[in-house]
């Protein structure tokens, strides 16, 4: 019983990481209407920037926190720059070109990362406060993973508040159903698009920084996470934030229990779930009918 609870907590921490990254992806799509295939590369950028900050700060205990603050902001700024300089030129183009376009970013960003940081695989150390596990509801659990869970829930809560309660959030929701009309009502859509794209990139960056102490960085990690994002949006419904949350939760649990009980086929489980969803509910948990 205790074991199951531990697995559940592990699954929750997977889920929150996955949610942070995929909600940015789905948000960008819902407002801009463009699939950012390079979203995983932004995440990877977050990981490597966190590593750089950690190296730069040496043994300073606060380096993780500074990385968590700084790296996502840098990623967001980079995203905003790309949207402003390049992406907005192709909104009117055929979707095929839009896919091709963000696809080329994967090559460029991934290779740049390789060039700048090298193929040297590194991992950053956990900040000292997380060095000891905590006793959480009767089980001993990694305090860092608990932190990820709480942070994920916090971001989910803030996002919910932003989207439901603020005027900017309403505009985002309105734009996700009808971009053109929002512009005709006087909303500065170019600015909105840049901001939403930056927000998506920031979320990817946060995910990246959080994962940096858990996993050695490697060149293909962007592609691995983007595939996870795909699976999340297919299961949760394309463009749905609520869907991203529940799908990430489902996948996190599937992964944690899969690793615990059927490690050989764990990887295929998420694909299987996606296949089942595509058969019984093609639009996903909360997807719109069309698209």
């Amino acid at each position: 019983m205790e074991d199951q609870f531990l697995i559940l907590l592990n699954g929750l921490s997977f889920a929150m990481l996955l949610f942070l990254v995929s909600v940015g992806f789905t948000l960008q799509f819902s407002v801009l209407g463009v699939l950012n295939l390079a979203h995983g590369s932004f995440y990877m950028l977050g990981v490597f920037l966190a590593i750089t900050v950690a190296m730069f700060m040496g043994n300073y205990a606060g380096n993780f926190w500074i990385g968590l603050l700084l790296a996502p902001l840098l990623v967001a700024a980079f995203g905003a720059f790309l949207e402003w300089s390049l992406l907005r030129r192709i909104y009117i183009r055929d979707v095929l070109f839009q896919y091709l376009f963000t696809y080329t970013w994967i090559l460029i960003i991934d290779d740049l990362v390789l060039m700048i940081w090298g193929a040297r695989y590194s991992i950053i150390s956990l900040p000292p406060i997380f060095s000891a596990p905590v006793n959480f509801l009767g089980v001993t659990f990694s305090s860092y993973r608990l932190f990820i869970i709480l942070l994920g829930l916090l971001v989910a809560g803030l996002l919910w508040f932003f989207l439901q309660k603020t005027k900017a959030g309403m505009i985002v929701r309105a734009a996700s159903v009808n971009r053109e009309m929002v512009g005709a009502l006087g909303v500065n859509t170019p600015l909105l698009f840049t901001a939403v794209f930056a927000l998506g990139a920031w979320l990817a960056g946060v995910g990246g920084v959080l994962v940096a102490p858990l996993q050695t960085a490697y060149a293909g990690m962007g592609l691995d996470i983007i595939v996870d994002c795909f699976i999340v949006v297919v299961i949760g419904g394309m463009g749905s934030i609520k869907g991203a949350f529940w799908a990430a939760l489902t996948l996190g649990m599937l992964r944690a229990f899969g690793i615990a009980y059927v490690p050989q086929v764990e990887m295929a489980l998420s694909y299987l779930l996606m296949a089942v969803i595509l058969i019984i509910r093609p639009r996903g948990f909360f997807g719109r009918e069309e698209a």
Partner: peptide, 13 residues
């Protein structure tokens, strides 16, 4: 990859 990425980007653009 970088070289081809840039070339593709420019061509698509």
């Amino acid at each position: 990859l970088l070289v081809f990425g840039l070339m593709l980007l420019i061509i698509v653009l």
